[in-house]
Design a binder for these strands. Structure first.
Lengths: 344, 344
DNA sequence: CTGAAAGCGCTAACAG
DNA sequence: CTGTTAGCGCTTTCAG
């Protein structure tokens, strides 16, 4: 009388079928064999479940087991092409493995990152894949100390022994510069931001080393991060170009900088478009149809996503166990197009 | 002896402070006043909570209340610029309102959509914001019947009374075409896909009406959806252009089609680039720095995201109550650039 | 004003 | 081979 056996719950099923919840739970979790439950009973339960389309309540399951089967992927900005592409691939792998992915954007801001991490910890997500903002070292260390799976992406903290998957920025940058140099460019500018994180530092370093190796002058424009997509940022680039009329090539360290740079060139230095050498970090389909087509340092998205998930899944399997951190460094590929061709 | 009061739980706090869990729960939920709990006790609890940095276990909370504070935003492809931009805005609003957002991509595929919806239902998400694939009408109706909040986005099912926020595709398309016509283009092609959903149908219809209104011939290329980003798709466009040498303008109904179209023009009809009128649906920053800059039908992303969330939040507030469906139709804006200028 | 206690739906140790 | 039962951490009714 009192029981609400109509409800789709293990209890209801047990009541309906005249077995115990344990039995139902076991067959539900595929432990029928292991627990030596009779074929007949197993089948009866399975059939009934099929019949009423029963699905276990994951929330209850999570509460009980402590695992939520959710991982978060925190990036700088999910609407940035590079990150949304990554996200798309990660999504596929994760769902395949029975995990859901929560995406969120931290805008490379520490406060926001911290808030987001706390938020998700409360929700007991199983793990974090993070493109970290500059100042959250301690938080990351704390997560690790709590044995919560974390893997960093795109940039990392050299002082911290945390799993990460990144690319060899310095080398990629060096190669890009060397390519320009070999194509006779002698006055190469680097346009970058003031972000003092490993990925940007590496790109800067690669540039400097290349210039030094070939005894070429350096011309670096460092834009405040805030100006990355603003009018202000464009003006700074314009000014920089005006003040350095001898430049014959420009290397942009991220895709949004490149967009701004191309806009500036188009507006204020239209003749330069086909005379100047141009190389960008981060590829984009549109660079293949631009005129000129733009040479780009292309990051191995697919591979990054795969390694990220592989690393995360390994951690998830054994979160308690200490392990030597996996530091995965992938190679970027220079895709040579028209914009860096030898000019006459 | 038996109790594990060290644990961060209401129980632990109650034990530690020598009060009951009820009391703690009440002050936690801001019902101290309402339940007339003494100031002293309230403060004591609050302070202690602050001290140990206690955060309630959301899972348990959800299990108990039946609300997960999670909504899902299902799009066609999260790596598509249009959707990732939308997602970014939605994310902000949602987090502000205390909701988390799960993003996922259905690839406009029914099977995948259905699987995803079931997956999330099990996880008892509070609501669904969906860019629906063509054949999931019944599922959507079922969700509504179950009183689960759903709001459709970008496209909808005319036969179903479900909240949605879309743009007036037909009108937007008509305006774009009219603009071309007024700029003296007389042989305008429409490049679209075979997707038979409202958004595409509307764009096609707008084109047809405009051509009819001005007694101009129609030239429609309908590409299979599968070819949207393939080489095959490019070849089809190339062939279409070869077979219709009289075309003087092309209107692409989505951004990926435009990318392909521009690639084809660049490769096979370089002279056409500046002679042909070009208009695209879906704006993109890169269109502002392309040469020529590309005229685009720009969808009001910010507004769409806001209306979506507003509608969702309203449903969330009162999921049980029947209500007249909100059918929000926004206006797109034609951003005129060089590619559709009058040609001599 | 405060406490006891009944679950939400599920898992798994323990006891037949 | 199957059933009983004790929680997971929280909310909320009902009694003091």
């Amino acid at each position: 009388m009192k029981n609400k056996s109509k409800r789709n719950s293990i209890k209801g099923i047990a009541a309906e079928l005249g077995v115990s919840v344990t039995t139902v739970s076991f067959v539900l979790n595929g432990k029928a064999k292991e627990k030596r439950i009779s074929e007949a009973v197993t089948k009866k339960i399975l059939d009934y479940i099929e019949l009423i389309g029963y699905r276990p309540n994951q929330l209850a399951q999570s509460l009980r087991t402590g695992k939520s089967k959710i991982i978060v992927f925190m990036v700088e900005d999910i609407s940035n092409h590079f990150f949304s592409r990554l996200a798309r691939i990660i999504e596929d792998i994760a769902y395949q493995k029975g995990y859901k992915v929560l995406f969120c954007s931290n805008e490379n801001d520490d406060k926001k990152s911290l808030e987001l991490i706390d938020l998700f910890k409360e929700r007991q997500v199983d793990g974090f894949m993070i493109v970290p903002s500059p100042g959250i070292q301690d938080k990351i260390a704390a997560l690790k100390a709590e044995k919560i799976p974390v893997v960093l992406c795109d940039r990392y903290f050299p002082d911290l022994d945390i799993d990460h998957v990144i690319i060899d920025n310095e080398k990629a940058s060096y190669c890009a510069c060397e390519h320009l140099i070999k194509n006779n460019f002698k006055n190469i500018a680097l346009i970058t931001t003031d972000v003092r994180q490993t990925q940007m530092l590496g790109r800067l370093e690669g540039y400097k080393k290349a210039m030094a190796a070939y005894q070429l002058p350096t011309n670096v424009l460092i834009l405040p991060y805030k100006e990355k997509t603003t009018l202000q940022g464009k003006e700074s680039i314009t000014k920089f170009f005006y003040e350095n009329p001898d430049l014959d090539a420009a290397f942009f360290t991220t895709n949004y900088l490149t967009k701004n740079g191309l806009a500036v060139i188009k507006e204020s230095f239209p003749n330069a478009l086909n005379k100047m050498g141009i190389v960008t970090f981060d590829d984009n389909e549109l660079f293949t149809i631009y005129t000129p087509t733009i040479t780009a340092v292309s990051q191995p998205l697919e591979e990054m996503a795969k390694e990220l998930m592989k690393t995360m899944l390994a951690l998830l399997k054994n979160p308690k166990v200490a392990h030597p951190p996996k530091k995965i460094v992938l190679k970027a590929k220079l895709v040579v197009r028209e914009s860096s061709k030898v000019k006459e």
